[in-house]
Amino acid sequence: DSWHDTVDGIELELHGADEELLKLAKELLKRGVSEEEVRRIIEELLK
């Protein structure tokens, strides 16, 4: 799946992010949310 590559990229960027955020990112990508949107959501949550 192409979203796996996206998640791997996000995981590299979010090496400090907790497991729950990564699960959320994967779930959003699986549901068709764009990579940009996922990054934006996670950045908001990390604030």
Rank of each mutant, 00 (worst) to 15 (best):
D1M: 04
D1I: 09
D1R: 01
D1S: 12
S2A: 10
S2C: 04
S2K: 11
S2H: 12
S2Q: 10
S2V: 07
W3A: 13
W3Y: 10
W3D: 11
H4Y: 08
H4R: 07
H4W: 10
H4Q: 11
H4L: 13
D5K: 02
D5F: 04
D5Y: 02
D5C: 06
T6N: 11
T6H: 13
T6I: 14
T6C: 04
V7N: 11
V7S: 09
V7D: 07
V7H: 08
V7M: 13
V7G: 09
D8E: 12
D8N: 14
D8I: 14
D8M: 14
G9W: 15
G9T: 14
G9Q: 06
G9E: 11
G9M: 11
I10N: 07
I10L: 15
E11T: 07
E11K: 12
L12G: 07
L12Q: 09
L12V: 07
E13Q: 06
L14M: 07
L14Q: 04
L14S: 05
H15P: 14
H15F: 06
H15C: 07
H15V: 14
G16V: 09
G16N: 06
G16M: 07
G16A: 04
A17C: 03
A17T: 08
A17Q: 08
A17S: 07
D18R: 10
D18M: 12
E19T: 11
E19C: 11
E20T: 14
E20V: 13
L21F: 05
L21K: 01
K23R: 13
K23C: 02
K23W: 11
K23L: 05
K23F: 06
K23D: 03
K23P: 01
K23E: 08
L24Q: 02
L24Y: 12
L24D: 00
L24I: 06
A25F: 05
A25K: 03
A25V: 11
A25D: 00
A25H: 01
K26P: 00
K26Q: 11
K26S: 06
K26I: 14
K26G: 04
E27N: 07
E27T: 15
E27P: 00
E27S: 13
E27C: 15
E27Q: 14
L28E: 00
L28F: 03
L28P: 00
L28W: 03
L28V: 00
L29H: 02
L29Y: 05
L29I: 07
L29A: 02
K30M: 14
K30S: 14
R31L: 11
G32T: 00
G32F: 01
G32A: 02
G32H: 01
V33P: 00
V33Y: 15
S34Q: 05
S34H: 06
S34A: 10
S34R: 05
E35D: 04
E35M: 15
E35G: 12
E36A: 13
E36D: 10
E37N: 07
E37S: 04
E37P: 00
V38S: 01
R39H: 04
R39N: 03
R39D: 01
R39I: 07
R39Y: 15
R39P: 00
R40M: 07
R40N: 04
R40C: 02
R40F: 06
R40A: 08
R40G: 04
R40Q: 07
I41Q: 02
I41S: 01
I41W: 07
I41D: 00
I41G: 00
I41L: 06
I41N: 01
I42M: 04
I42V: 06
I42C: 02
I42R: 00
I42E: 00
I42P: 00
E43K: 12
E44H: 09
E44V: 12
E44Y: 15
E44I: 09
L45H: 05
L45P: 00
L45N: 01
L46F: 06
L46H: 04
L46W: 10
L46C: 01
K47M: 12
K47I: 09
K47Y: 10
K47G: 07
K47Q: 09
K47A: 09
K47R: 13
K47W: 13
